[in-house]
Structures are given as structure tokens and as C-alpha cells.
Computed example of a mutant assay.
Amino acid sequence: MFRLYSLIWRLTGPRQMILIVLSFLIAALAAAPLKFQQEIINMLTDGTGDLDRLLLNGAGMMSVILLSLGLKWVLGYSSGVLGEDVIRTIRKRLLQSASEHEAEPHHVSAGTLSTAISAEAEELGSFIGGAFSEPVMQIGTLISVIGFVTATQPRLGLVALAMVIPQVVIVLITQKQVNRLVGERVCTLRGATDKLTAELLEEVEEAVMADFDRIYGFRQRIFVWKLSTKFLLSTISGVATVAVIVLGGWLVLEGRSDVGTLVAAVAALGRLQGPTSVLITFFRQLSVNRVKFDLLHSLMGPARQAPPVA
């Protein structure tokens, strides 16, 4: 993983810094709408508000939302363009390396090169576009939202934190199995493609069909691991939501909290599920792309340096 990230930084460091700054700004704004929501609910329930104050809070909430959406648009476009630049660079480097070593006995076969250029390079390049900004934004959002809930009602903040930690542990455990299956699947697909391009179809049909069956089996097992993990994560989210509602409702009945805080805490849980889900997906992509990076790196040759991304 360190080798992958060091290469990403060497190729795209200056542009990644811009994306990281945008991610920090987005994360800093994550809890602001919840604060406006809390103020509006409390103002309506305790009867201390008026129309001017309601409109002012509504306008403030909408302004923060629009600003956050605008920053996300810029971040998404910038990371997408950066990813496309990296895809182009990887493809050029693969083609150049294959051309330079075409005369060698163990040169890269046409089938493997085709698979690497068409699919593997695109997946890895797309990941690199958000390699730094995505985790910064999502982790920052989690910290911002959990911090807001904890500041307003510490008990509810602990429930929110307790929802995130088990999800991270589950993903760390299950992703190892998924990585192994992905690596075997990629190697099998490369081998099947090599057979198709190197021999007459009639001679390799049975062997390639067997490879297709193996790839199918790998995908089945990957689905089992991913869907089982998703089931456990969704269960934890459901338990946390019920716990916040029950605990928060009890605190309101006891006069130790207010309705606005409870509503904001429930909304915050919804906000937490998004970043948590994205972070889990990102970690899966990171793990899978680390495997694919090692496989692509083996095609380029250990002594070569990748050219910088424009």
C-alpha cells in the first residue's frame, strides 16, 4: 500500500494537494446544516421563535448546503479529470514497455497487454483520482458530525461512534478474502485471454471454457463475502438508529435533552451512514487496486519509472 501511495504522490502530488484542501472545506461544512436544523426545531417547540428568525435560519441552512454542493462539484470534476490523466499515462507506459521488450523471450503477451490496457488500467487510474481526497473528505465528515452530536449530547455521540468502529473492524477482516479472490480472478482472466490470442480457437476452447468457469466461481465467492459484510453493516446501522431514538427519547422525557438535539442526532446518523459507506467502499477499492497495481507493475518492469502526469 505504501508503494502505491508513494507512486501516486510522486505522479500527482501538487494536484492532490488542491483536492485535499477542497476535501477539508467540505468536511468542515458537514455539521453546519445539523446546527441550523437543531435551532429551527427548538425554536418551534419552545415557542421562542418568529418568522424572521425562521427565515434567517432557513436561508443560512440553504446557503451552507449550496456551498457544500458547489465544492463537491469542483472536487468531483477535478478528481475525475486527474483520474483520466493517470489512465492515459498508465496505458502509454504499458504500451511503451511492451514495445521495448517485444523481442525478449518472456515478453508480455498480446492477451495480457490487452486486458491490462483496457480494464485494469482504467480501474486503477480512476481510483488514483480520489486516492487522497476521498478518505480525507469522508473521515473529516465523520469527525465533524460525531463531534457535533457529542458536543450537544455526549451519550448520543458515543452511540454514533459505537456504530462506526465495528463496521471498520468487519471490513478489515472480510476484505482480505476478497483481495485474494480478486487477484486469482485477474490472473485467470489474463491466462484465458492469452490462450485466445495465441492459439487456434478449436485447440483452446475447452481450456478457456474451464477458465471462464473458474472466473465465475471467483465472482460467486466475492459476492458472498461482500453481501454478507453489507448485511452486518446495515444491521449495525439499524441498531444504532433505534438506540439513538430510544436513548434520546428517554433523555427528552427526563428533561435532560431537547427535541431539536434528538432530531439532529437522528439526522446525523443518516449523515454518518453515507461517509461510512463511502469509506468502506474506498477501502475495498484501495485493497483491490493494490493487488492490481502489483500485477500491472510486473508488466512494466521493476527498473522503469513512470512518467509524471501532466
Rank of each mutant, 00 (worst) to 15 (best):
G274D: 02
I8R: 04
T112G: 01
H106M: 14
G70Q: 11
L56I: 00
M163C: 05
M17S: 14
L44N: 14
W73L: 11
E84A: 15
I215T: 13
D294T: 07
I117E: 01
M1N: 13
L227W: 12
F282D: 02
W250P: 08
R271W: 05
Y216G: 11
V86C: 02
S99W: 01
L71V: 08
R10T: 11
V263D: 10
V159Y: 04
V108P: 00
R53I: 00
R53W: 00
M62F: 13
G47D: 02
M43V: 06
G70K: 11
T141M: 03
S144K: 06
L189P: 13
V81L: 10
L227H: 14
R3H: 14
L201W: 12
L272W: 00
T229K: 03
P166H: 09
S97P: 00
L262I: 14
T193C: 15
G58N: 11
G274C: 06
V266G: 05
P308I: 08
V171M: 09
S237C: 04
L161R: 04
G147N: 03
M17Q: 15
D85C: 13
P33R: 04
I18K: 10
F223S: 10
A103G: 14
L22N: 01
V246A: 09
L161K: 10
D52W: 02
A160K: 00
D213N: 15
T261N: 14
L94E: 00
L299M: 02
S114P: 15
S78V: 09
M300A: 11
G49E: 02
G125E: 02
A103Y: 09
V309S: 13
L227Q: 12
L232D: 00
E84D: 15
T235C: 01
A210M: 12
V242K: 14
Y5T: 03
R271S: 01
Q177I: 03
V86I: 03
G255K: 13
G255S: 13
A264N: 06
Q16E: 06
A310Q: 15
T12L: 13
F218L: 03
S118E: 07
L34M: 02
R155M: 15
R88P: 11
G80C: 09
A131R: 01
D213T: 14
G238W: 00
A207Y: 14
Q220R: 12
R214N: 07
M163N: 03
R284P: 03
A310K: 15
A103S: 15
L189R: 09
E84I: 12
R256H: 12
F24R: 06
E203Y: 11
R271H: 05
I65A: 10
A192S: 14
